[in-house]
């Protein structure tokens, strides 16, 4: 398995370089960052000086190689807007995103599993149908829309929760619901279908035949088997969480990396865009690798060669 892991890591390197190259070229298609950073009124001489100072006047291949060399040294460059290292800026904002992401995951697991199990057990019932329609809604509604509706209804209309910002637990509720809406819906659907599948297995019938109480059959035999693929699949949704964070953090003024990335895009902060995409890509690649390896660990029938 070690050899497999090493091979996967080696394969990840060209993936990361490829993603970096695509990001590198895409951001440069969108215009000159000097004008964005220095403003409409900056004289041409200042624009030229800025480009020279940040190496933006060099040919693209040279810029790319310089960037890769920096990355290899652990230097993701300096933000054009903040004039600070990208890694520092990223690290400052990461805890907020982790907090929001984790709470979205917890909500997705709690609600997804309980509602999913209930829906599977009552498959075909009117409530199951309501749940299935609601789930479709949860997966389809855009995050920015849901977020704004929650702000207007819950925060402004009812006055129950703050409209945004990062503070106590009350500040966490609305952004968590917004970010988790897709994950919750996904979890419900996934749990329901896995449970429906598991409940028809022979060992469940055996357990019931042995006289095990129905609650115990669900908890110990069915749910335990259904949870492993759910956790795995949820882990693979980390990219969804990060992309959802861009919208959720902006709507709720949440000071995380999602909003940071969006701000960087709108201000053409090349190093921040490149650095953020690179780090998040690496994270997603890593999570995928861990999930694959965990599969082999959890299921002895799986062998990697």
């Amino acid at each position: 398995m070690l050899a497999y892991a090493i091979r996967r890591i080696l394969i990840a390197i060209p993936t990361l370089i490829g993603i970096t190259l695509i990001t590198f070229l895409l951001v440069r298609v969108t215009g000159d960052p000097a004008r964005f950073v220095l403003g409409d009124t900056a004289p041409p001489s200042a624009i030229e000086a800025f480009r020279a100072e940040h190496g933006l006047d060099k040919p693209l291949p040279v810029q790319f190689v310089n960037y890769l060399a920096g990355v290899a040294r652990g230097d993701l460059g300096t933000s054009l807007r903040y004039q600070q290292p990208v890694l520092t800026l990223f690290a400052e904002r990461l805890p907020a995103t982790i907090q929001l992401g984790l709470s979205a995951y917890i909500l997705a697991l709690l609600v997804g599993v309980s509602v999913g199990v209930y829906s599977a057990l009552r498959a075909g019932s009117p409530l199951d149908k309501v749940i299935r329609v609601s789930v479709l809604f949860g997966q389809a509604v855009p995050g920015f829309y849901l977020g704004l509706v929650l702000i207007i209804v819950v925060a402004v209309g009812l006055g129950w929760l703050p409209t945004g910002g990062r503070g106590g637990l009350s500040h966490l509720v609305l952004p968590t619901i917004t970010l988790a809406s897709y994950l919750v819906a996904f979890s419900v659907r996934f749990t329901r279908s896995v449970m429906l599948d598991v409940l028809h297995h022979d060992y469940i019938r055996t357990a019931r035949a042995k006289g095990v109480a129905e609650g115990a059959v669900i908890r110990r035999h069915a749910l335990r088997n259904a949870l492993i693929p759910l956790v795995t699949v949820l882990a693979l949704q980390s990219s969804v969480v990060f992309s959802g964070a861009v919208v959720t953090e902006t709507v709720f003024s949440w000071p995380g990396i999602g909003r940071f990335a969006l701000q960087a895009i709108s201000t053409r902060d090349f190093p921040v865009i490149q650095g953020t995409v690179l780090i998040l890509t690496a994270f997603v690649v890593l999570v995928n690798l861990i999930v694959d390896l965990a599969y082999a660990y959890l299921d002895p029938r799986i062998r990697y060669s």
Partner: peptide, 18 residues
């Protein structure tokens, strides 16, 4: 000074007295 980039959210925060 609270940073609220989204216009609607900034307006909502004003209406709620935040």
């Amino acid at each position: 000074y609270r940073v609220i980039p989204e216009d609607t959210a900034r307006l909502a925060a004003l209406e709620t007295g935040e």
